[in-house]
């Protein structure tokens, strides 16, 4: 450990295969679907402390999302079945992109599709609009067609990422699903098809059930969707440890991140950056607060840079 007062949590995610990189002011990012298109959180978050925000999943056409109940709270977790409600890529480019650019907010565009062609078009549009980083959602459990289908079959994922890579020159992140028996072949497929980075994990398929006995009868409620929050952290830690066995590209961790220790745990299995998701609902400023807390910790304990801290945790 070195003592140094000019500590910094800047970090660069870099693909060692092709040199593609994405620079972050801090390793703390806000996860897709939990932060809208960023402007909604103005006044509650210190954007200067955030590495980047990942936009809500964007599809080619705008989507109304699922009808009925979309949220189910359970112990230490949240099940959602939003169904990718979003404004569509055109409205994003015309309405949201100028705001993000004007406010100088570093962002990653999250895209999702039902067909290979959807992803091809979306990545082409992203490239044309000079979007610096793309997160490919192949793991949403809440839509009927496509999306997760691509994320569960290594050969299909390879083909998809290859096509996106051909269209898109920026920093390409593939967000993997935990809804598989073995995540390793999927991570390998993403990497060999040209992904620069992996983010893991998306939500886990789950069923929320509520049974009430009222007026002499049982009332039942079922909400099937994707589980997130504190309860999924051990699953994500396992998945990332598996992914790190087979890839050299950087990994962004997601799943139940609430405090500094969670960051350290994810670093210990090889994570290079973090996305805060469900915790944003409780504490809208949590990602920027964690970035400050990380800086304070590093200063107090004599770490001059985030890389040094990572090395110490991994090798210590």
């Amino acid at each position: 450990m070195m003592s140094n007062t000019s500590n910094t949590i800047n970090t660069i995610l870099k693909n060692p295969h092709n040199g593609n990189s994405f620079e972050l002011k801090s390793p703390l990012l806000c996860a897709s679907g939990t932060f809208g298109y960023a402007d909604e959180y103005e006044g509650l978050v210190d954007f200067n402390e955030l590495g980047a925000i990942v936009t809500k999943g964007i599809t080619l056409e705008k989507r109304p999302g699922n009808a009925g109940e979309r949220i189910f709270e359970c112990d230490f977790g949240l099940i959602n079945r939003i169904g990718l409600e979003n404004i569509g890529i055109n409205d994003f480019i015309n309405e949201k992109l100028p705001i993000l650019k004007q406010k100088n907010i570093n962002f990653i565009l999250n895209i999702a599709g039902s067909t290979l062609e959807d992803y091809e078009k979306l990545s082409y549009i992203a490239n044309e609009n000079d979007i610096k980083a793309l997160e490919v959602n192949v793991s949403c459990p809440n839509v009927k067609h496509g999306c997760l289908e691509f994320g569960l079959k290594p050969d299909l994922l390879f083909e998809l990422v290859k096509k996106i890579r051909a269209n898109y020159k920026g920093f390409l992140i593939v967000k993997l699903s935990p809804n598989t028996t073995d995540i390793k072949p999927l991570a390998q497929s993403a990497q060999s098809a040209g992904a620069d980075c992996i983010s893991a994990i998306n939500t886990i398929r789950a069923l929320g059930v509520k049974v009430n006995f009222e007026n002499n009868k049982f009332n039942k409620k079922f909400v099937q969707g994707g589980l997130s929050g504190a309860c999924i952290k051990p699953i994500s830690l396992y998945m990332i440890s598996q992914i790190k066995q087979v890839v050299v590209i950087p990994v962004i961790a997601l799943g139940g991140i609430y405090n500094l220790n969670d960051l350290f745990e994810y670093i210990s299995v090889g994570a290079d950056a973090f996305q805060v998701g469900t915790a944003n609902f409780l504490y809208p400023s949590i990602a920027s607060d964690l970035a400050k807390a990380l800086k304070d910790f590093m200063m107090k304990n004599g770490f001059s840079c985030f890389e040094e801290l990572k090395k110490e945790i991994l090798n210590g």
Partner: peptide, 25 residues
């Protein structure tokens, strides 16, 4: 309605309106 973010971000509490002959969220 059950809501997660309470500021329009997560779309967890969406409802549908019928306005000007169109269904909107």
């Amino acid at each position: 309605k059950v809501m997660a973010c309470s500021m329009g971000v997560c779309k967890g509490c969406a409802i549908r309106l019928f306005r000007n002959n169109e269904i909107i969220n």
